[in-house]
Each structure stands twice: as C-alpha cells, then as structure tokens.
Nucleic acid binder design. Structure first.
Lengths: 147, 147
DNA sequence: TTATAATTAATTGAGCTCAATTAAATGTAT
DNA sequence: ATACATTTAATTGAGCTCAATTAATTATAA
C-alpha cells in the first residue's frame, strides 16, 4: 500500500469537501419548488424565520441563519419588494432595523408547506441517518457560536 | 404540546439548513490558513485535484468537484494567473481544455500539507462522528450523480 | 458632561454559484 | 457527404457570501 504525508490533501480524505458539495446539491434540489414561489433558498430560510417570529431584528435574523448584514440587507430588501415583509427602523434604538411579516408573507406559508416532504424524498436518507446527520451538524454549528 | 401542519417549516426541523450553515462555517475555518497561501477555498479544492491528477480536463474536474464550467473557468484562470496551473486546449479534441499542474503548483502542496490537521482540530468531531458524517454525505452525493 | 468605546445596519468590492445561452467541434444517422 | 444532434468550454447576468469599512446611535467611563 502506498502512503505519503500528502495523503491528507487527497479530496477523498476530506470531510469538508463532501460537506460543501452536499450542501450545494441539496440546496439545488429545492430550486424547482422555490421557483414556483419565485424565491431563492436564502429567501426561503429567511421566510421560515419570519413565519415563526412574525417580527425580528436584522441582527437576530442573521444570528439564526449564520449570515451577516451584508447578506441579510439585500435579501430583506428583495423580500420587501415582493411584499412578504416590511422593514422598519426601531424608534427605541435607532441603530436597529426589524423585519415584519405581512399578510402576503403569511399567505406564502400555505404554498410552501409541501416543500420539505418533497425534498426529503429526493435526498433519500433513512430516519436514523437523518438524525445522526442532524446531531453532527448542530455539533459543528455549536462550536462556531462559541468562538 | 402544540402541533401544526406548519411545523415542517420550522428552521429547527430542517436538515438542509444546518447542512448549508455548517458547510459555510467550516469553509470559513479554512480562510486564515488559505489566506497565507493567497488562495480561496474553491481554488484549494481545485488544487487538491491537480496535486493528484497533474493533468485533467475542465469537464472531469467539474465532475469531481460538482461544479460547472461557469465556476471552473474563472477559478482555473485565476490559478493560471497565480502560476499554479496552465490551461491548454486539446489538439485531439478541440472542444476540450485541460489544466496542467506547474512546478510552482506542485511546490504549493508543501505549504498546504498542514492545513487539514489544523482545521480538523477546530471542527472538533470524534473519529466516529467524522466517519458517520463522511458516509452520510457521500450517500447524499451519490444520489445526486444518478439524478 | 464629555470623550471614548461598542453596537447596528448598510455599503462596497472580490469571488463564487448557477441557469441559460453561445459558438465551435465532434459524433451519428440517413 | 450532409443534416442533425451532442458535447465542451466560455460567457452572461442574477443573486449570494464574506471581509472590511462607514455612519449613525447608544453605552460607558472619566
């Protein structure tokens, strides 16, 4: 068997590469369904938070999604242009801006509710694999938050 | 316990979201080390293939990395500008373009060899978790190739 | 109070990602 | 041989991601 100190640089020995590739491939699976709603994946996960919270600051939204204002600001402007949220600067702390779910945004939930099941079918993991993956990914994410 | 048909749209019930977020966070872990080499993560995984293959077509490279020519072409041009690869159109099939590893590209491997260990430390999974994750991610990726 | 520090969102610019299109080369079927 | 289809890389444009910076506001310390 051949073996060198450079084996650690082989693509097949990476954990990050399949993580990066799988994430992109799975996001791609959402596209046909999200196209019907005329939103992108990033807009979709933003709406998921809005459906739960109804109202949230840009900062809190970014922390939930692991995205900064450089990403969130244009995403929220786009969702505002589509009529799903409204952005408003706080009167009590004028540094802060919040997004508010509109009726139209609330109505979009009804059109989105079948998407998770449709995509889960494509990905094709067993329930156990799904749970293992879920736990490991959140372990990675919790490491990042400490930092 | 509250329970609604909309629970499937909660962020915490998604598998795709932590996959997407963890992938970005882990790629971010590479940045300080890759900055020292003046390459991006995408350029880094491209070089991994080059270190193994020495010569490869744009198409084959894209298949390995799950990226298309729209991404690969500018990445390869950038690596060529840095002197790590040379691009050359095939004489036997002029549709095809190959990238060739240069001596300078080969030399870069020496500077990269410590990176995987440094990043693995940051991510902080057990060996078992790493293996589970690896298997599940490749199961997802194999699904995509069938398509 | 006043100076200094910290927080927040927005902006800028580089680079990535993808879908769709284009152009050239090659393969295939009459 | 000549259409027609396929393959390949490149290009284009929209949108995302991130680091760094900016400007405004708020918090804190002297």
């Amino acid at each position: 068997m051949s073996n060198s100190k450079y084996d650690v640089l082989k693509l097949e020995n990476q954990l990050c590469f399949p993580l990066y590739a799988a994430a992109r491939e799975v996001v791609k699976r959402y596209r046909p369904y999200l196209d019907e709603l005329d939103i992108t994946y990033t807009q979709y996960i933003t709406m998921m938070v809005m459906w739960e919270e109804k109202e949230i600051t840009v900062k809190a939204l970014g922390e939930k999604l692991f995205l900064d204002s450089g990403t969130m600001t244009p995403v929220l402007k786009s969702l505002e242009a589509k009529g799903y949220v409204v952005r408003k600067r706080s009167t009590t702390d004028e540094r802060s801006v919040s997004a508010f779910l509109t009726d139209s945004g609330e109505a979009l939930k009804e059109k989105a509710v079948d998407i998770p099941a449709k995509v889960a079918g494509c990905v094709g993991l067993t329930a156990e694999e799904g749970l293992q993956l879920y736990k490991i990914l959140y372990k990675i994410l919790s490491k990042e938050v400490e930092e």
